[in-house]
Design a binder for these strands. Sequence first.
DNA 1: CGGGTTTGACCCGCGC
DNA 2: GCGCGGGTCAAACCCG
Length: 184
Amino acid sequence: MENYPLRFPSQQPSASFSTPCLSLLPADMIGGTQVFDTLQGGNSAGFLGLKDEVEVPTSQGYGAYQLMESFAGSRENEEKPSKKKEKKVRKPRYAFQTRSQVDVLDDGYRWRKYGQKAVKNNRFPRSYYKCTHQGCSVKKQVQRLSRDEDIVVTTYEGVHTHPTEKPHDNFQDILNQMQIYSNF
DNA sequence: CGGGTTTGACCCGCGC
DNA sequence: GCGCGGGTCAAACCCG
């Protein structure tokens, strides 16, 4: 019963984008603030905020929430269950959705997939990725809405403590690419 | 041969 | 307590 109707090109992690998306954003920009204000122009990419559940607004959902600033000790929740401390300090998660044909967006980091689960009320599975950089425990999960199967929700958890692996150019190049895409 | 993906099992929190 | 659903592990598998 794991037949997921349409499985998107899941071969390579860095698929080529056939649709405008904000895939080139380094993740530390997400930690920034109003980067998205600039980007919302051509694409439907919105910031969802950091809810535990990524339930997406029914419409196009530009839920431009405020970003929590307590990334302070988000290094490890390596606490044993016996610890009576702050239990389960769930790292802040922040998500944004993108309109894209490809599931996994190339944000410049290197990810290793470590799980995939079927989501209730969703015909599409959710994929779990971890950053493969040593010592970096950033995770992300990618999910596609069954409502709008054009929408991909990417949820990041944690913050990278290292630069991107990719020589992904400067911001100007990113803008250039976006302009190319928006010629569609 | 090494690194990434697949996939079922396992774990754990939560609601009933 | 139990079952369900989300999240993770890890062994097998795949591919360059």
